[in-house]
Structure formats: structure tokens, C-alpha cells
Design a protein around this nucleic acid. Structure first.
Length: 553
RNA sequence: GCCCCUGUAGCUCAGAGGACAGAGCAGCGGUUUCCUAAACCGUGUGCCCGGGUUCGAGUCCCGGCAGGGGUACCA
């Protein structure tokens, strides 16, 4: 579970013991938090608990720290516990214990870093879920990487994770897409037909129409307009979903399921969800439409469920969809990842979930801020309707899938992001992606050399690992479980990107200072074990980020 | 107008209320008889402004300013 967790438990125990001995007042303890001090002189972990307790205990933080430190049982991992002004308890890890961790890492293999904080809780991560009206663009890539990485990290943290893409195969947007395709098809046949105002103007629509023409000839002309649009639409939907699937695959993103909006109506989930809402008194008919009375749940305004036209809104579908997630499929927790342009939808969705009788905390919605695209000084518009767009596929052509993932991942979801294509290309030789992967390739190269010389290091004695560069590498490796825990707790996968850089850095420093394969057979074997552990940690981190771990570069 | 996100080094961004605020890129200068130089070393007057809470604020609260997004019987 990681040494930080163990030390946290010990400190909590000491604090409770202090309460039992009336050193501390018997009141709720603040959460015990261990952090990594910036200054290495303060050890590996620091805790500011004494300062937080000082007032209530009517003691000065230093003596309180001393008292707690004395109640702390000894632990093989801890070489030193120091109380430092103005009231920190600092822990320094023992070098022999650190060295010994190598054995545990090798034993765990790629499972190193896995935790059980999730206790097998079933949760769903739903992301991307864009209307299949066109290819994925650069903004969608961000949500894709965010969701996929989060799902991987939550899986590593011991949750039972299912990923899902919600296919909006109904609704106005799709109708506009179907009609647009049909009109382009007619135009391709030489007919003078105008695109609808709400039509999709991108040039890919014309390509689609030409493909449709090539496949079906003029067969659709013989059909009534509505039927022709429906047939063109079904065909176009499948084609576009195919594009989306291919791009995501290239990005290393796959889904456990693709869920059809349409099925909600086919299989009665829509009716059942609406039934619960009306039974709960959360619906009302007004002005010919059916409304969800969000104001009864503290919202600013009510929202339309069924238009006067009788067609349900996207919101109504989404309620049925979440009814399905929570009440039919029984997910204990659902994480939705949406673009920031959906933020207005968040409070009413939470209200709707509450109206369904589900605690709204079980729905967690992550908004990723917009990606603004630039090519140097030139700002590029990202709009499917007007056509001028940079697709995710083009981005991957330019910078590569690994670099895409890393760049997306290195920013927290709530920071707006400028993706400068020129910069991403220009940096591609000297960017952090290669820095990290190069560390992995260097290790692979060392292991290959050892293999070539038939060095069997299985019996290597890790207690020979005592120098600072070796220990620094170990200290960083043992942080991997902490990073997984952090990502799972905060739902912020960007911590992985920073950890990967730090891990690569300590390895490169180790590499500079410590030659692995030397005449000293015993030390060589020990260091080979260490290097193998470092490879595992790097490979696992790269895996969690969905990036490749090359043996050669 | 109201709501949400953001404002940290020249640029892109990290930063569990803690001890001296970090990294990458860009710039300048250096390192290779040795497991990959896609590496390493050196070089930095920076938390948007004003109040407040706290032993302690880049972090929390209030008020500004700036950028982005939302505010539909669109999704």
C-alpha cells in the first residue's frame, strides 16, 4: 500500500495514544497528511500535525511534536524521526530498507504501483461521446486522453472500471447531419439543392457524399425524401463512427462499450426514467411542453424535457441514460468527462440524478477546458459546421500519438490549453516525451548488454545499493503508488506526467554517476536489479499514460 | 447582468494551508578513451491588484482587473 500510508497510520495511532494519555484533548483529529518536503534536509516525509493541534492542546507545537514522536513505534523503513521548528515531524527513510524494496518491485513486475484503495468498487468512466457528425478534432483528443488515462489509473488503484462512449444517434444535431449528407449526395449527382442553415459545411461531408454515391449509386433518388435521408443517415453514422474509432485506436484509447442513445427509447429506459420523475412530482406540463422542475431541487430555473413538438430534449435522454447507469447497471459511481461548453448542463444533471433517488455525489463530472489551436500566431477556429478544422488524426500525423497524449496529459483539466502546432512540431526532437522514453530505452540497452554477457543477476544482493544516486532513484520509484493514489483520489491524471519526468530525471542522474555493468560482479548484479526495477516503474507509468515504452530509440 | 474555469519565470505549465515557490522549452556558456549526448553540468530581481481569515496564504474568503466558457423547447 506504500510507505507513506503506513507512516500515516503510525502517526494517527500515536495521536490517539496521546489522547488516551490525556496529552491531547479527546476531540476529532484533523486528517494526518504526509508530504514530501521541498528541502531534502528535512527528510523524505514531513507532517505538520503538531502545529494543527497546538491550539486545541494548549501546547507549543515543538513539545507536542516531541510527545507524538516519542509515542511513535519504530519502523524498519524509518532511519530517523526529527521534530523541527516551527513544529514539523520529519521522517527519513532507512537506506537498507529502500534497497530491499527492489526485491518487492521485481516480484510485483508490471503490477508494481497497483493498489487496493478502490476495493473493487464498480465505476464507470464515460468520455468523448461526441455526436458522430464528423471526425474528432483537437479538443476531443483532450477528453479522450483524460478519460482513458483516468480509467487506467483508477483500475490500477483497485477500482473495477468500465469505459463507455455514449453515441448520440438521435437528436437535432444528428438530423442536421443526416440531411446535410443527403443534400451533398444530391449535389454530387448534379442536383441544385441548397444546404440547410444548420447544415454541416465541412469538406468531409462532400467526401462522405461521394463515397455514398460510389457505394449506392443513385439508388437513394428512387426513395421518398424521408426514407432516403434515413438511409443516408444510417450509412453516414456508421462511417463517421468508424473514423472516430480509428482515431481513438491510434491514440491508444478503446472503450469497453459503445452505448446507443437510441436504445434508451427502444428498451423502455426513457419511459421508466420519466415515470420516476413524474411520480416524484418533478415534472409539470407548461405551454405545451413537459418540464423538469429543477427549481424544486434548488436550481435557478426549470428545464424542458419534451418539446411542444413532442420530441424529447437531449437533457431527457441524458436523464434516461443516467437512470440506466445507476439504477439498471448499478454503478456505484459514475464519472462523466465533458467539454467546458457543457458546464451549464452540470447542475441540472446533478439535480436530475437526485430526483431519480441517487445521491448526487455518486455522479462526478469533470469538465475539461477548451483547447485553443494555433499555428504560430495564427489562431485556428475549431468548428465542425464551418468546416475549417484540424482533426485529431492530422495532429497525430504531425506530432505522433505518444506526444499527443503527453501534451494533453501535462495540463490539468481545468486549465485552458493552447495547442500550438508549430511549437509541438518544433519541440518534437527535444520534448519531455523523448526524455522519458529515452530513459526506458537506456535501461533496456543496459539489460540487453547484461544479457549479451550472460550475466545472471537473479542472486544479486540489493544491500550493496548504498550510494546517493542509487537511493535517490529508489526514493522516486517508491512514489509511484502514491501517484496512483493521488490520481485516483483527485481524478487529476496530469500528476502522472510530472512524475514520469521526475522519474526519468533521477534515472538519467543515476546513469551519469553509476556505471551498471563493471568488473565488480556483485555490484553489477545488484545494480542490474535496481535498473530492472526502474524499468518497471517507468514502463508502468508510461502504460498508465497510454504511451509506448521503447527498448530502442 | 448572473454562473463556471483560469491568471505563477521570456513562453507552456506544476505546486494535500506549511519550512528557501519548481519543471520543461527558448537564450547564453561548457561536458563524449567508458552500458545510447534524444543525456549531463552551469546560468533565473517570477505567484494579476487590494483587503481579510490563520501561528503560517501561490493555495482559503471578500472585492476588483484580465482571458476563456456558459446562460436555448442546441448538444
Amino acid at each position: 500500500m506504500g510507505i507513506r500510508y503506513e507512516l500515516t497510520q503510525l502517526l494517527e495511532g500515536a495521536a490517539r495514544e496521546a489522547q488516551a494519555r490525556s496529552i491531547l484533548p479527546a476531540q476529532a483529529l484533523p486528517e494526518v497528511i504526509l508530504e514530501h518536503p521541498q528541502n531534502p534536509a528535512f527528510g523524505d516525509y514531513a507532517c505538520s500535525l503538531p502545529m494543527k493541534l497546538a491550539r486545541a492542546a494548549r501546547m507549543d507545537p515543538m513539545s507536542l511534536g516531541q510527545a507524538l514522536a516519542q509515542l511513535l513505534p519504530s519502523h524498519e523503513a524509518v532511519a530517523r524521526v526529527e521534530v523541527a521548528p516551527p513544529g514539523f515531524i520529519n521522517f527519513t527513510l532507512a537506506a537498507p530498507w529502500l534497497a530491499l524494496q527492489v526485491e518487492a518491485m521485481l516480484k510485483a513486475g508490471m503490477a508494481y504501483g497497483d493498489l487496493d484503495v478502490g476495493h473493487g468498487e464498480r465505476l464507470q468512466v464515460e468520455f468523448v461521446s461526441i455526436n458522430p457528425t464528423g471526425p474528432l478534432h483537437v479538443g476531443h483528443g483532450r477528453g479522450a486522453v483524460l478519460g482513458d488515462t483516468l480509467a487506467r489509473a483508477l483500475g490500477a488503484a483497485g477500482f473495477q472500471v468500465e469505459t463507455e462512449y455514449y453515441v448520440n444517434d438521435g437528436g437535432n444535431q444528428m438530423e442536421a447531419f443526416y440531411t446535410s449528407l443527403y443534400v451533398r449526395y444530391l449535389q454530387a449527382l448534379g442536383q441544385k439543392e441548397a444546404m440547410p442553415d444548420s447544415g454541416y459545411m465541412g469538406s468531409y461531408m462532400m467526401e462522405l457524399a461521394r463515397e455514398l454515391l460510389a457505394e449506392r449509386g443513385d439508388a437513394l433518388l428512387a426513395l421518398p425524401r424521408e426514407e432516403a435521408i434515413a438511409q443516408a443517415g444510417r450509412w453516414g453514422l456508421e462511417r463517421v463512427l468508424g473514423w472516430i474509432r480509428e482515431d481513438l485506436e491510434r491514440l491508444g484509447v478503446s472503450f469497453d462499450s459503445w452505448f446507443s442513445e437510441h436504445s434508451l427509447y427502444r428498451e423502455g429506459q426513457y419511459e421508466r426514467a420519466m415515470g420516476i420523475l413524474s411520480q416524484g412530482g418533478f415534472t409539470a406540463e407548461r405551454e405545451g411542453a413537459l418540464w423538469f422542475i429543477s427549481t424544486a431541487l434548488g436550481e435557478d430555473k426549470d428545464n424542458v424535457l419534451v418539446r411542444t413538438s413532442g420530441i424529447p430534449t437531449y437533457f431527457a435522454s441524458d436523464i434516461a441514460y443516467h437512470y440506466n447507469k445507476f439504477l439498471e447497471r448499478g454503478f456505484q459511481r459514475v464519472i462523466d468527462i465533458w467539454g467546458a461548453d457543457h458546464q451549464g448542463h452540470v447542475p441540472r444533471m446533478k439535480a436530475a440524478v437526485a430526483a431519480l433517488g441517487v445521491a448526487p455525489e455518486r455522479l462526478q463530472i469533470i469538465l475539461n477546458q477548451m483547447v485553443a489551436l494555433r499555428r504560430g500566431e495564427e489562431v485556428l477556429r475549431v468548428s465542425k459546421r464551418t468546416g475549417e478544422l484540424i482533426t485529431l488524426g492530422e495532429l497525430m500525423d504531425e506530432v505522433g500519438a505518444d506526444a499527443c497524449r503527453f501534451f494533453y496529459l501535462a495540463r490539468s483539466a481545468d486549465a485552458q490549453m493552447d495547442f500550438d502546432l508549430e511549437l509541438a512540431k518544433r519541440q518534437s526532437a527535444e520534448n519531455p516525451v523523448y526524455y522519458i522514453q529515452y530513459a526506458h530505452a537506456r535501461i533496456a540497452s543496459i539489460l540487453l548488454l547484461a544479457q549479451g554477457r550472460s550475466i545472471d543477476y537473479a542472486s544479486g544482493d540489493v544491500s550493496l545499493l548504498t550510494t546517493e544516486p542509487e537511493l535517490a532513484l529508489l526514493r522516486k520509484i517508491i512514489q509511484l503508488p502514491e501517484v496512483v493514489e493521488t490520481v485516483a483520489r483527485t481524478l487529476e491524471p496530469h500528476h502522472l506526467a510530472y512524475y514520469a519526468q521526475e522519474l526519468a530525471m533521477v534515472f538519467h542522474l543515476f546513469y551519469r554517476d553509476c556505471r551498471v555493468v563493471t568488473q565488480d560482479v556483485a555490484l553489477t548484479r545488484a545494480r542490474l536489479k535496481l535498473v530492472e526495477a526502474a524499468r518497471l516503474a517507468l514502463a508502468k507509468t508510461l502504460y498508465l499514460m497510454g504511451m509506448s515504452a521503447p527498448d530502442k530509440m
